[in-house]
Design a binder for these strands. Structure first.
Length: 356
RNA sequence: UGGGGUGUAGCCAAGUGGUAAGGCACGGGACUUUGACUCCCGCAUUCGUAGGUUCAAAUCCUGCCACCCCAG
């Protein structure tokens, strides 16, 4: 097969490319440049990453080149990111990036280049069942990235390959080291995909209009201070509230946001009841199989990445799903994705409209 | 300008003669392909201020300053 590997400069995609080449496929490494802003130090990290791609591909001995989807990224991912924050929600741009850029704009592009499939270094697995492509959690429980792939559809998954999805991260690094890949010990990348680690407060300030307002105690309704713009806060957040020396002495957390009135509601104590929700509703829901398994059913849910699965009941609604947790969950956050799982199988995901 | 009280880090607050607890906030790091959470580390040579007593004072004494309360 002719396989294009989306290469980031990291070990996972590098080893993915190596494994496919070793299996006899015709592999081409492609580096995507989707964000052209320098970081706080004036450094363009993408240049360093591409340099790693070059060196890796030389070692593996495969052709490589770079493509630029920064326009598509800005229009289809970043604009949504901005609108969501402006609306008081906390978006997950990386989920959107997978469905709109990597496995959409980029996938289409690679197919036009005669590639048969697009491989990435994601920790997730694919398997066929009844003619459908199922998305499974990555074998490495600590690295599982199926959450980020929750909105991919059959068309996209049918052309996708995740060569390291059934491996442990440490084994991936070992292979990288064994074959002499220069990035074998490179630190895992973090931050928004393609944008990278940022001082988030400043980043939001630059890209989203913010307006300061009152911080109100959810219990007493008293104004305790000023917030610096609702977009800077996420439900359940502790950092940045700046309150101290009051009440019980415990830390304060963001309980809720009133966007129309520009009020940040805060509460004291990590386990304050105001932080808990019985369930949630999503706006729309993307089913991996194309449709829901039933009108209502039991399964587990993650409503943020790297969170333990919460057992729940799901009811499919006209738009989206309604999820009722077996036990109350802390900090259900509008804008984040609620991803459903049936054991190893990722059923799909939808954006959280509200906790309830 | 009679009486009483209080002044310890950005905030709250232990400590009443033996060489500055703790919490919150904040900063840094770890974790992490979102944002958060979490964890770890750091954070008052100094206790309103000026003197005095003492081997030794945030702790005792005196003056001054500030704030609060009661009475005027």
């Amino acid at each position: 097969m002719n396989i294009t590997v989306g290469m980031s400069g990291g070990v996972d995609s590098a080893v993915a490319a190596y494994l496919l080449k070793k299996q006899g496929h015709a592999v081409t490494g492609v580096f995507m440049l989707n964000w052209e802003e320098e970081d706080a130090n004036g450094v363009c990290t993408a240049a360093d990453d591409y340099e790693d791609v070059r060196r890796v591909c030389d070692v593996i001995d495969i052709p490589y080149y770079t493509v630029n989807f920064s326009t598509e990224y800005r229009e289809r991912v970043f604009s949504v990111f901005q609108h969501e924050y402006a609306a008081g929600r906390t978006p997950n741009p990386d989920v959107l990036c997978n469905s709109e850029i990597k496995f959409n704009a980029f996938l289409d592009f690679t197919l036009q280049t005669q590639a048969d499939a697009l491989a990435t270094g994601h920790y997730a697995r694919l398997t066929k069942r009844d003619g459908l492509t199922m998305l499974l959690r990555g074998t490495d429980r600590n690295k599982d990235q199926s959450y980020f792939l929750c909105t991919l559809n059959q068309r996209q998954l049918n052309r996708a390959m995740f060569p390291v999805g059934d491996m442990q991260k440490r084994d991936v690094r070992k292979i990288a080291a064994d074959i002499g890949l220069p990035n074998a010990a490179k630190k895992d990348s973090t931050g928004i995909c393609f944008i990278g680690e940022r001082k988030f407060f400043d980043f939001i300030s630059r890209h989203v209009p913010t307006k300061s307002g009152d911080m109100v105690d959810v219990d007493t309704q008293k104004v305790l201070g000023r917030h610096q713009g609702l977009s800077h806060y996420t439900v359940g957040q502790r950092k940045g509230i700046g309150l101290g020396g009051m009440g019980s002495g415990a830390a304060w957390f963001v309980a809720d946001k009133d966007v129309p009135h520009n009020i940040l509601y805060v509460c004291q104590g990590r386990d304050h009841p105001a932080l808990y929700r019985e369930g949630l509703e999503t706006e729309g829901f993307s089913w991996i199989m194309g449709e829901s398994p039933a009108q209502s059913f039991a399964c587990t849910a993650k409503f943020r990445y790297r969170q333990q699965d919460a057992p729940c009941k799901v009811v499919v609604q006209a738009r989206g799903v309604r999820v009722l947790f077996d036990t109350k969950q802390r900090a259900v956050t509008p804008g984040q994705y609620c991803v459903l799982y049936d054991g190893e199988v990722c059923l799909g995901g939808g954006v959280i409209l509200r906790g309830c």
